[in-house]
């Protein structure tokens, strides 16, 4: 079997997704036996010129959001060079943290200087807003998470690179993926386009904490409270987004007392994560007095930034870009 060719790239992001690929430890060695990583600027220092010489790439793992003109060019180039395009991590899949910059749009006062070609430091032009990868090019698969959990990413790599060639690898992969995906992989079929390599239910389904009656008497920011171990965080007044978020992490954060921040995007059945959280949180308010509820509501800070922390660009129903917008490259001079 000829070696597969892989490409890894991060646009606007922190490269933690790429670190997660490195984090598969010894398995990275076994991966390189059946695949060549032909383009990986972060680790191999690959140049764009070298990409063309390599010929078509089999799988491209694209991380990071599209915020600048350079990101858009990179996405289009890698897409045209790759057979499969995987949006890797919350930024590429949903816009991620960079999309929160849309809450503080560029104004003439805070605008960075785009220097002339002759100058040494040239900043790429900003897009009109932050896009997820799927707004700019066609995306075949999504691996959510900030960063994606190691097991899921490794399972995704194996199922796309080996494509049903290795039974031992497939049993590892199948045990870690949602059933529909696992079944298609074990029977040697490429998973359906647009599949998300994560669970279908909400994080609450895999969270180990005990959920009892929820009564909200006040809202606490994480530093203000030392949560009881073993009891649902939302019950204790911490804004935990587990109930609106796709499962797959196994409740990593909630297990150690940190509230779920929603990095896997919304769960399958949720229409809009913000609406779901508003509904869930406010129905637990322990009051029937309008003034009292209004007082409680005032204690909440930055709802948009909290509920759409990783997903503002794609999953906030009120912010979905229209096709026109995504098509146009920036022309802000």
């Amino acid at each position: 079997m000829p070696k597969k060719k892989l490409a890894v790239y991060t646009a606007t992001g922190c490269a933690a997704c790429e670190n997660t690929i490195l984090d598969i430890h010894y398995d990275l060695g076994s991966l390189t036996r059946s695949a060549d990583i032909v383009f990986w600027p972060y680790v191999l220092g690959s140049q764009w010129d070298g990409l063309n010489e390599q010929g078509p790439v089999d799988v491209c793992f694209f991380a990071g959001a599209i915020r600048t003109e350079a990101d858009r060019i990179a996405a289009v180039r890698l897409r045209s060079n790759s057979k499969l395009m995987v949006a890797c991590g919350a930024c590429a899949a949903f816009g991620g943290l960079p999309s929160l910059t849309d809450l503080h749009p560029e104004t003439p006062e805070n605008r960075p200087e785009h220097l002339d070609e002759g100058n040494e430091f040239l900043l790429p032009k900003l897009e009109s807003r932050v896009f997820a990868l799927e707004h700019i090019v066609d995306v075949d698969y999504f691996v959510p998470g900030c960063p994606p959990t190691r097991d899921f990413l490794w399972a995704a790599i194996q199922s796309l690179v080996y494509m049903g060639d290795s039974p031992t690898r497939i049993s590892f992969t199948a045990s870690r993926l949602p059933m529909a995906l696992a079944e298609s992989i074990t029977s040697g079929i490429v998973p359906p386009r647009g599949s998300v390599f994560a669970g279908e239910k909400a994080v609450c389904a895999s969270c180990s904490r005990i959920k009892e009656e929820k009564k909200f008497r006040g809202f606490y920011r994480p530093y203000e409270i030392d949560p009881d171990s073993g009891r649902c965080l939302l019950e204790q007044g911490i804004l935990c987004q587990g109930l609106a978020t796709r499962e797959g992490c196994g409740g990593l954060c909630t297990a150690v007392g940190a509230a779920c921040r929603g990095c896997f995007g919304k769960a399958e059945a949720v229409f809009d994560p913000g609406a779901k959280m508003v509904s869930a949180v406010s129905s637990t308010f322990d009051s029937t007095e309008a003034s009292e509820i209004e007082g409680l509501t005032k204690t909440f800070v930055d709802l948009a930034g909290t509920f759409y922390r990783y997903t503002l660009a794609t999953q906030c129903a009120l912010r979905t870009p229209n096709a026109e917008e995504a098509k146009h490259a920036p022309d802000n001079s």
């Binding site: 913000g274 609406a275 508003v278 029937t288 509501t297």
Partner: peptide
């Protein structure tokens, strides 16, 4: 119940 939700929703 509708009243309870309205405040947070309006804020969002």
């Amino acid at each position: 119940k509708a009243l309870r939700r309205s405040f947070l929703l309006r804020k969002l």
